[in-house]
């Protein structure tokens, strides 16, 4: 892996994680209420928009990354996102990492990596 590919990969993983955390921050705000009012509240706060923006920028880095590696290799390397977001959810949102949750998340991540290897 060249330094450029590695950099694009790390930036993609960081942006994907950041985008998901921003969306989670927007969606789980206890002050947002329910129904249509919840959507209005989310639209009036920066978190959801920052999350969407982060995602759009992420897609650009991802496309640049995919132009340098095979799609299967991209799928393989993207499996790390799942583990990073698990750890981030634990750190920032105090999500409990029960043994079953960790097992499930690691299995899904491994499965995605195997699919990437198997193309």
């Amino acid at each position: 892996m060249t330094p450029l590919v590695a950099t694009l990969w790390l930036v993609s993983v960081s942006l994907e994680t950041g985008g998901q955390l921003l969306l989670k921050r927007a969606a789980s705000d206890p002050l947002a209420g329910d129904g249509a009012a919840r959507w209005r509240y989310m639209a009036s706060r920066p978190w959801m928009w920052l999350g969407i923006l982060t995602y759009v920028v992420k897609i650009l880095f991802w496309i640049a990354f995919l132009s340098l590696v095979d799609l299967s290799e991209g799928v393989l390397l993207s499996s790390i996102n799942i583990v990073v977001i698990m750890v981030a959810g634990w750190l920032l949102f105090r999500e409990k990492l029960t043994p079953l949750r960790v097992a499930g998340i690691l299995l899904v991540s491994t499965g995605v990596a195997i699919v990437g290897l198997g193309a």
Binding site: A27, M42, I85, G89, L97, R101, G104, V108, V112
Partner: peptide, 25 residues
Amino acid sequence: WMSLLKHAPIGPAFAATHLDVVTVM
């Protein structure tokens, strides 16, 4: 996704979305 994330923990939820790899396959 935004409706699910109101309550769903992001770690397990994000992992669960990867079932689409199987259906798309």
